[in-house]
């Protein structure tokens, strides 16, 4: 909300500023843009390089071929389309469920009074800073046990991985959402209550539509987080058809010898496309969502 009011004011005020400042800004931005684009350019170049090397010496592409892309979609040992599908399904499920469950919890933390609320929030934060890679051992043992009875949500299954992701990100999501919900005026709830709305009604009819921007950001972050997650997925998913993109692609370069950068680069590019599109189309929300959650949180 504040975003809209500030912007026109600042831009009209900044117009008369000298071009010297603008020039400096331009120079700085361009340096960073080159820095940002450098690896991306290297990846694009390598993806079309059939030799499998991560860039040769020259910056002008010497060879061009679709071989790497072709390999991803034709080699039966590399079910790349399947990996992408797995990642998208997992990420979508995670972001949707995380928003609903996290939203409900955040609503309770923000709007309701109950014993242990403050402690609960602190505990949420503390649990998040626990070095999680060791908890992996525990999770592994647990899911191995679950597998013996419920293979669908046990070790090696996407369902089990989904549950772990949901649990793992819950704390962050609740904090992020709660910060935003706190900025929604209480008066709205009160007005609805006077009109006879019950708490669940307030939640679904008032809060849910109003919090839509931050819910979208949370969903997006959950989506990206799932897409990027590597360590858990690599330990968890052993079956080649159940791998996520991250785990699958790593098999090209994970080996110390015989690293094959070509397909890795091509796959990375393809895998990044959905994320980049999502990101660019939702960037307005992201800026607001990230800081609202923190500042008012």
């Amino acid at each position: 909300m504040s975003v809209k009011t500030v912007k026109p004011a600042s831009s009209t005020r900044k117009k008369p500023r000298t071009t010297k400042g603008n020039l400096l800004a331009h120079a700085y931005i361009w340096v960073l843009i080159l820095f940002v684009l450098f690896p991306i350019y290297v990846v694009i170049e390598s993806s079309f390089n059939p030799t499998g090397v991560l860039t040769s010496g020259s910056f002008i592409p010497s060879q061009f071929s679709w071989a790497n892309y072709h390999l991803l979609f034709s080699d039966p040992h590399v079910p790349f389309a399947r990996w992408i599908l797995n990642s998208i399904v997992l990420a979508t499920a995670n972001s949707v469920i995380a928003v609903f469950i996290g939203g409900a919890s955040a609503f309770a933390f923000s709007r309701m009074k109950f014993r242990g609320r403050k402690i609960g929030l602190q505990a949420l934060l503390l649990v998040q800073v626990f070095p999680s890679f060791l908890a992996l051992a525990a999770i592994y043992v647990m899911m191995e046990r679950v597998y013996t009875v419920f293979p669908a949500i046990g070790l090696g299954s996407l369902g089990g991985l989904l549950l772990i992701y949901l649990g793992g990100a819950m704390g962050v999501n609740i904090w992020l959402l709660r910060g935003y919900i706190d900025t929604i005026p209480m008066e709205l709830d009160e007005a609805a209550r006077i009109d006879g709305a019950s708490t669940p009604q307030v939640y679904w009819l008032i809060f849910f539509p109003l919090a839509a921007p931050v819910l979208a950001v949370t969903a997006l972050l959950a989506f990206i987080g799932t897409f990027n997650e590597f360590i858990l997925a690599s330990i968890f998913l052993t079956d080649v058809h159940r791998r996520t993109v991250a785990v699958g692609l790593n098999s090209f370069v994970g080996a110390e010898f015989g690293q094959n950068w070509g397909p890795f680069a091509a796959g990375s590019l393809i895998a990044s496309i959905p994320l980049v599109i999502l990101f660019l189309s939702l960037q307005r929300f992201i800026i607001g969502g990230l800081t609202q959650g923190a500042t008012k949180g």
Partner: peptide, 12 residues
């Protein structure tokens, strides 16, 4: 452009 790295899986 500057937010692109955020959208690329970090392990990659």
């Amino acid at each position: 452009i500057v937010i692109l790295p955020y959208a690329i899986p970090s392990f990659m």
